[in-house]
Design a protein around this nucleic acid. Structure first.
Lengths: 330, 330
DNA sequence: TCTGGTCATGTTAGCGCTAATATGATTATA
DNA sequence: TATAATCATATTAGCGCTAACATGACCAGA
């Protein structure tokens, strides 16, 4: 920077201003500075800028997994909003673990992020304590909170699970199973919604639930279908906690010659890209992941600018997509 | 840091050493320093560390898209190697554009990354020039290079396309179409491989190629299938440039009542997670994306440590996975 | 003509850390 | 016991930038 300043014959401060607050430098001078910077191949040093200004122009995003498209879609939404504003995203991967999140948060705080985007609300006690002591704006994604001191953008996972289950009940299904893997916070809540809907209809039966802590995948969905059919051979519909599992189940039914939805209806959660295209097309709960990322980023941006957002909690809802893997039970 | 030093009664330098080079501080003292740091909630400031040491412990990774799982898998591999070594990854999204990459590279250089991981070799002239002038170790991912001054980890996209096409020819297919979207560097090369194989068998016909610049998706694969059938109704096999398109084609065939592979064989590229599970299961070229990320990161790590890797170019190959969407033409 | 305001630019100091070097204490060797 | 080598810790200076304030030029209005 000093070189550029010398070349143009101004002080370093003026060069700094020419980059950060161009309107506070005379037009002609600014152009000369920019030309000199280009000639010399000068690029500002972010670390120095950060150190001097106490702003990092960086936000830390903590997600459970890099390979689950649900979170990548969210990150893409965040990126879309933050990148044009000059903010850099640091992605931390917690591996669905509270301890992992705790350690990562510590690591990422060393980068002095200006803001924090966290997944879910099920943080460890230590994480919550640390967050409370932090002066960094934080927005929680994917779920809803009624606490006025917490910023959240998401949807009610419980109501999502409940809505899908109710819809299946309306369609005449009675022995509706719930099949879940991974068992993170959101999965548990979808199960809770399922349970409420079944109980309010007087249909609840613990034997219709199959929960596994193993990671979700299409292949594992196929396996869980087998297990569920063994556990509750009389089930007439299966609600999978996510679309990966449900897609695996569809393929497995096809192999086994199980008619979907006539013999067995299948429903998923998330509405992944492939779900509208499988044969039969998957009935699922569409979640606005990309919008969650966008809106969470926008909310964080407001906070970074010192504005209070209108709402502390933004509910982006969900949509039950009835496709071909469910029908009407007569 | 000064607070911690004062509390323990040592100099700031000793606190710094206790964190960065723990073995150069006496055991008991180190423990007291760590205890004091914990008490005071001290976390090192990376920006200051970076400024003072001229090392950012950061590497910039430029990928074309965040939503294409191919690149995310690669990033996951990079992350797996780099995270335990204390390196932070900065992800830049070029949007499949050379200009985008050029601008991003400039932006990311402001962070003074210790290393660079770029996708492909088809960078703009300006990017190549800039890279040459840079003292930052750089590894190119996904493709191969025979230039001794370039580090690359990947596979031969041309040979991948050629191998699959040859296999189809061996299986008796004669009117093999090539269907591509997105038309990035890798797609073009796969097409080149297809063309070589068709030409060497004397089967090449320009009318069997369908290239579209639009982004790939399952839905677009379905549409391209329709277009291809209109363009070359006599085709007996279709080689899609990636699995998204191929999966869309499988579903579309199912809807149209086209027997796969009897009336029409289908092949893809990449071997995405779902491809082994579709019905019929997709014949495709499996690419070691995760390993590419891991190995590229390892190679970069060697370079960062001042070691010359044994090879400048690491070929991780590919595997033709013959599944159910192709058979034998009699 | 003077006063006060506005604007463009300059000066000073310091952000939090670490490289390089200095210092002093301890240990090994002759 | 003297000397050198080794180790643990301290001191100094500076990484590249920007906040805060200072300066001086210019202009409007009385």
């Amino acid at each position: 920077m000093a070189d550029v300043a010398e070349r143009v014959g101004v002080s370093a401060m003026t060069v700094s201003r020419a980059f950060k607050t161009p309107d506070r430098v005379a037009d002609s001078l600014r152009e000369r500075i920019q030309a000199a910077a280009r000639d010399l191949g000068y690029l500002p040093n972010r670390a120095a800028s950060q150190l001097a200004s106490a702003r990092s122009m960086t936000i830390a995003v903590l997600i459970p997994s890099l390979t689950n498209t649900v979170f990548i879609d969210t990150v893409a939404g965040i990126h879309q909003v933050m990148h044009p504003e000059g903010y850099q995203i640091l992605i931390g991967v917690t591996g669905y673990s509270g301890d992992g999140e705790e350690r990562l948060l510590e690591t990422y705080l060393e980068y002095n992020p200006d803001g924090l985007l966290l997944t879910g609300l099920g943080h460890s006690a230590a994480t919550w304590t640390r967050l409370r002591g932090l002066a960094i704006p934080t927005v929680h994604m994917m779920e809803l909170s009624d606490r006025p001191d917490i910023y959240a953008v998401g949807l009610s996972q419980i109501e999502g699970g409940q809505a899908m289950t109710r819809r299946l009940i309306e369609r005449g299904y009675r022995r509706i199973g719930f099949v879940a893997a991974q068992l993170d916070e959101r999965t548990i809540r979808r199960g809770e919604g399922y349970r409420r809907a079944m109980q309010e209809a007087g249909l609840y039966d613990a034997n219709l639930e199959l929960l596994s802590p193993e990671p979700s995948s299409i292949g594992f969905g196929a396996e869980l279908l087998d297990r569920m059919l063994a556990q509750a051979p009389d089930c007439d519909a299966l609600f999978f906690c996510n679309d990966d599992l449900a897609q695996g189940a569809i393929y497995r039914c096809r192999r086994l010659g199980i008619a979907v939805p006539d013999r067995l209806a299948i429903a998923g959660f998330n509405d992944l890209a492939a779900s509208a295209w499988t044969v039969p097309a998957l009935t699922t709960v569409a979640t606005p992941r990309f919008a969650i990322g966008r809106e969470a980023a926008s909310m964080l941006l407001s906070l970074l600018r010192g504005k209070r957002p209108e709402r502390t909690c933004l509910d982006l809802g969900f949509t039950v997509m009835e496709r071909e893997t469910t029908g009407t039970r007569t």
